[in-house]
């Protein structure tokens, strides 16, 4: 079930990656070979098998509702690409 270049472009859009013009074919071919490997999964009948999303199938441990964090904005924003007036700056967000 080989992918089309359009499908690869759709995945890239969803993942916010840009595939440079000219490498689309190469990317698609490599992904195809990965999907060939992954398609081996379809060889097994798993009817009735419960999916396992976690190695330890335990219930969640809950945290008590208490404030434990203090303000560390200055430290966090010291490593921000662009921050001002306590805000992270990004290209204009349009709703």
């Amino acid at each position: 079930m080989p992918l089309s270049n359009e499908e690869v472009a759709r995945l890239a859009r969803l993942a916010r990656l840009s595939i440079p013009d000219g490498s689309a074919d190469a990317t698609r071919k490599q992904l195809d070979s990965i999907f060939v490997l992954m398609t081996q999964l379809q060889s097994v009948d798993t009817t009735g098998i419960e999916p396992m999303s976690h190695p330890q199938e335990l219930p969640a441990r809950l945290r008590e509702d208490a404030v434990t964090e203090t303000n560390r904005r200055a430290t966090f924003q010291a490593i921000a690409p662009q921050a001002e007036a306590g805000l992270y700056l990004v290209p204009k967000v349009i709703e």
Partner: peptide, 13 residues
């Protein structure tokens, strides 16, 4: 997202 103008950018709180 705060849409006041920060040099043409949005601020994120």
């Amino acid at each position: 997202s705060l849409h006041e103008d920060f040099h043409g950018m949005s601020g994120i709180d």
